[in-house]
Design a protein around this nucleic acid. Sequence first.
RNA 1: GGGCGGUUAGCUCAGCGGUAGAGCGCCUGCUUUACACGCAGGUGGCCGGCGGUUCAAAUCCGUCACCGCCCACCA
Length: 784
Amino acid sequence: MPGSAPSRFVPSKDELRWIERWADAGVGHADPRSDRPAFSIAIPPPNVTGALHMGHALNNTIQDVLCRTRRMAGDEVMWICGTDHAGIATQAVVEKALAAEGIYRKELGREEFVRRVWEWKEEYGGQIIGQLKRLGCTLDYGRERFTMDDAYAKAVLHVFVALYEKGYIYRDRYMVNWDPGLGSAISDLEVEELEVTDTLVSIAYPLTDGSGEVVVATVRPETMLGDTAVAVNPGDERYRDLVGKTVTLPLLGRELPIVADEYVQPGFGTGALKVTPAHDPNDFAIARRHGLETINVIGEDGRMTEGAGPFYAGLTPAECQARVLEDLRAIGLVRKEEPYTHTVPFSHRSGARVEPIISLQWFCDMGRLAEPAIAAVEEGRVRFTPAKWGEVYLNWMREIRPWAISRQLWWGHQIPVWYRDEEIHVGLAPPEGEGWEREEDVLDTWFSSALWPFATLGWPERTPELEKFYPTQVLSTARDIIFLWVARMVMMGDEFLGEEPFSEVYIHSVIQAPDGRRMSKSLGTGIDPLEVIDEHGADALRFGLLMMSSTQDVRFSADRIDQGRQLVTKIWNATRLVVDRGGRAGLPAPAPATLADRWIASRVARGVEEAADLTARFEMSQLAKLVYELVFDDYCDWYLELLKSGEATPDVAGFALEQILALVHPLMPFVTEECWSRMPGAEGLMAVHPPPVAPGPADPAAEAEIDAVQEVVSALRAYRSRRNLPPRTRLAMDPAPAPAVAALDPVEAADDAARPTLVATLLPGGRSIHVGPLAEAVDPEVER
RNA sequence: GGGCGGUUAGCUCAGCGGUAGAGCGCCUGCUUUACACGCAGGUGGCCGGCGGUUCAAAUCCGUCACCGCCCACCA
């Protein structure tokens, strides 16, 4: 590279060029017929509606580091690329867009609406794939998959039918989490418990025989309309005589049995519990034990049903609550009202307060599926990093509950079930004959995501891709989808391929906003990775994110991005210097000629070894720190200074630079590719350059010597600084300084014993040094 | 109610049994022909509190205090 090259690398200009070059050279393309060892990673498929956020940027940088490293090492790398149809999110986005034009989903009808979603997907979906390219990610873009592709849909239906036939999937009228905002059931994992302060109301239920009353407490008086019993603890003396009697439900006049159930805590409230089987999971269980009637009073539309009686039907629960309280007060049955703080379920998807209701839904029993997936982690076939997440996974798996898999949406995999009167048909194809109607519900998005590592490779066909690249090696993700996604992939992989879909799960940091809040668009705390890329370059962003990443949550730090940008500039300028001094690429390893050469060879050797170790252990911030220090401290601050003074040789400098570029490339692909291309003798892309090798063996002797040199030089500089001497003051030193010391700093040997003004003493091993005038050599201030 | 994690320099974080580290900030010098997105030299921490183990503890154990996250069906 000519010395007249600009003193900075300009990412905005050069990065786009390299993205094209990599694509043209097929860098991300995987060949299933290759003889090379396979290395594969399945990207956590971003939502089609998604845009790159910091979490994606970090996660995909990590995956790209791993993929690039393995590719350079000679593996056939497939980084599986694609997006997720994200049922709820996508349907919501399109619905909103249509509503802006005054078009409503229900008016369009299902078929037309789904067509519009596809249209939207073709036009706006998947922009994140382009953004991943900007980040420098070497995915196999030519094999981009979508969880609603025909082939993928086939896999989904196949799995549904197979699990149905095994008896794992079944339909039941059961209590589910109903999301009134969404108009759909959601799974337990999509429910978030939030603390709220409600009013705990005590209501008197008169005994039917007129002999008194039983007082119950509730935070949801409106649900009393669906009460079908009052329960007390069997050991509760106060109520022993009442068990078997009945009370009359106020407002509706229904007669309710008083039952005894262990669930009831005698110490809570009055010790008597109103039982609303249709709207409380505990009450539902009590009702099943006692064969009680269940009466729905809140419907799927989130309003009171006919079951609530003519005065209340049609109201929202909140309106109904006010009305019920008013009516109860009017007849004098409210005994107490007090504030009460407890947790209440809210939908993670819509934010609405979840209504537990009884509904006819499809479920998947997870017990049997979980067994091999538990063993996989217990027996170490799947390993989590950090290891604690393996425990979290196991704790959840060991108490796994049935999964509510049906969703009352239109966008998704429609459940392959047909009904005709009492008949039911479950199959890949519709049944023969007239009068069949297909199940309207679709599957939970995570049901299809669970198949990602193999459905993307063509399963259930036995494709060459599947043969070569399943199972994958690593799954990298954040902890929030360990249950939703990771666990389910393991279960499905075990069930359908007989093998876990990956052996390593790396759980990376969550990047928070600089103030410690969650980074989110709605909070206004998001930082757009693309803006960072535009401003500082993808390499700087990648490096900064790797530096930030950790085993815990971290705040986004603009300083780390700066550090990355500075490293980019440093590498760029170091390359300029080396090229100027005659450094070349593509040489066979030259024999180190000087002490400095032996030293940098040793440093690079150490760096290469440590980098491999850190990469294998997913120590990304340590890896970033290592390359930073190797470039700045070793190569630039000391070695290149020695090169300028003639204490090192250009061949070794060039060779070491080539290796350093190769070492840094997986982290910062753009600047390293650019620098490589500017080294005389460089051929081919750095992206497929062989892995870095040391220009020589680790050399402890050379390292010890240079350590000593560094100490002397630092001491000299500190001495000058303390004395406020001009920086380049020449000092005479006795004994004569080592050539490397003299080269790095303007010192001269004291040739006249009467004249020396400075003493530097290197004791064996280079550990003890005095720097200062002879007269001060014993001064503790100076002694080091 | 269970479980996990955090508390280290002004800020953001590493380190996790052997004399306290980085980046940024701050102070002093430097237009040294790769780089001022730079170079050199500095300032700055009883490593949350209290106990304990050890020759030796940010580092291991116990406990307390805040902060955060996950799981959980007490009206």
